[in-house]
């Protein structure tokens, strides 16, 4: 992955935000902040998926096995 954030972490955080936002006792200020963060994360995930290209890395075989 090109950037440091793990894709899995991004998705996890996105789901967390979605769940928090649905909780009843959340102030409007906090809700708007969460919403903004969520939209930003979602955009980042979409970008990562669109830019993704499979990387293949070949290691040297252990020749002594012969």
């Amino acid at each position: 992955m090109s950037k440091k954030e793990k894709f899995e972490e991004l998705l996890k955080r996105l789901q967390e935000i979605s769940e928090q936002l649905e909780s009843e006792d959340l102030g409007l200020d906090k809700a708007v902040k969460l919403y903004e963060e969520g939209i930003k994360l979602s955009k980042l995930c979409h970008q990562k998926l669109e830019a993704a290209e499979l990387k293949i890395n070949e290691l040297k075989s252990d020749v002594t096995a012969k």
Binding site: L11, Q15, S18, L21, E22, A31, Y35, G38, S42
Partner: peptide, 18 residues
């Protein structure tokens, strides 16, 4: 992609509800 899209609409709906 579908998962993210669903979260997107959840976020929107949750804020709208709020």
């Amino acid at each position: 992609i579908n998962f993210i899209l669903e979260i997107d609409s959840n976020l929107y709906r949750a804020l709208e509800d709020k």
